[in-house]
């Protein structure tokens, strides 16, 4: 899938004329990531040209943030919170079975906190949030995502 066509349009959409153009880099990258599922090398090159940055600079930004991928994700993902409050509520005990059930079909991604710390364990699929996870509930999420 080629990304170039839509990139110029996305860049233009994010300029307000008030702040330096590069300030829009994160929103632009978010849009590209959302639209194409990843940010390709060609895209990095094109963005660098459009925003008057070096390729290394744009690449450095893409690689710094967990949300941006340079390759498309091979599997659908469930973001499972494994931060302290969810640990206190037992998330670690859910992990081995979940990993087994998900193997090869769904990626169980670790995130640190979804702001649902009083009712964990918590997970997010796309932008849907789930709390008070039990082995059954987590398993159902895996089956849904697969």
């Amino acid at each position: 899938m080629t990304q170039e066509g839509g990139i110029a349009e996305i860049v233009v959409r994010h300029q307000d004329g008030k702040t330096p153009a590069r300030g829009a880099l994160l929103p632009i990258l978010h849009d590209i990531q959302a639209e194409y599922g990843h940010i390709s090398e060609e895209t990095v090159r094109e963005l660098a040209a459009a925003l008057n940055l070096t390729r290394a600079e744009v690449h450095g930004v893409v690689s710094f943030y967990h949300d941006f991928n340079s390759k498309p994700a091979p599997l659908p993902a469930i973001k499972l919170c494994r931060a302290e409050a969810c640990k206190a509520r037992g998330v670690e005990a859910l992990v081995p079975d979940a990993e087994r059930a998900a193997a090869g079909r769904v990626k169980i991604e670790t995130v640190y906190c979804l702001g649902l710390c009083s009712v964990g364990p918590s997970a997010m699929v796309g932008s849907d949030v789930h709390a008070a996870l039990t082995p059954e509930k987590l398993n159902a999420l895996i089956e849904e995502a697969a």
Binding site: P20, R22, G23, A24, L25, L26, L51, E57, G60, V61, F64, Y65
Partner: peptide, 8 residues
């Protein structure tokens, strides 16, 4: 990050 840089 707001300036479009690495969050250093």
């Amino acid at each position: 990050s707001l300036e479009g840089r690495r969050g250093e």
